[in-house]
Nucleic acid binder design. Structure first.
Length: 114
DNA sequence: TCATTGACATTCA
DNA sequence: ATGAATGCCAATG
């Protein structure tokens, strides 16, 4: 099924540790496609009905771009705050402290030496 | 069926 | 440095 890509995204998102956040680009990269961050968003679009912690997925700015798709934007912030995520004045997550990078990406980067 | 959009990111001009 | 354009995959109009 075409959901193969979705399945990868789901696995990555499901692996996000509590109190951590990741970006669409990293997820896409961990899936093997670094430029398909948009598609990752689509996957999460369907994930909104799943048990996946899509609220831990943010854009590269650390902003909760998809908060509206949760049904309650402030709920997303509340969830992240409950997990120990810190927001700065720009409504962006403290990437420096909470950014989680999928191990697969680390290995891939190390190998490619880009 | 074809074209456009969509919770993004990267690169060229 | 800022702005516009492109790439990726899938879904919807």
């Amino acid at each position: 099924m075409k959901q193969d890509f979705f399945d990868r995204v789901y696995k990555i998102v499901a692996k996000i540790p509590k109190g951590k956040v990741t970006t669409y680009g990293l997820i896409a990269e961990s899936c093997g496609i670094k430029s398909a961050a948009r598609t990752v968003g689509w996957a999460l679009n369907g994930a909104s009905s799943s048990n996946l912690p899509c609220h831990r997925v943010v854009n590269r700015f650390g902003a909760l771009t998809g908060k509206v798709h949760f049904g309650d934007p402030k709920l997303m912030e509340d969830l992240l705050r409950s997990e120990g995520i810190i927001f700065d004045k720009d409504d962006c997550v403290e990437m420096k402290k909470h950014l989680w990078i999928p191990p697969k990406v680390l290995s891939n980067k190390t190998k490619k030496k880009k």
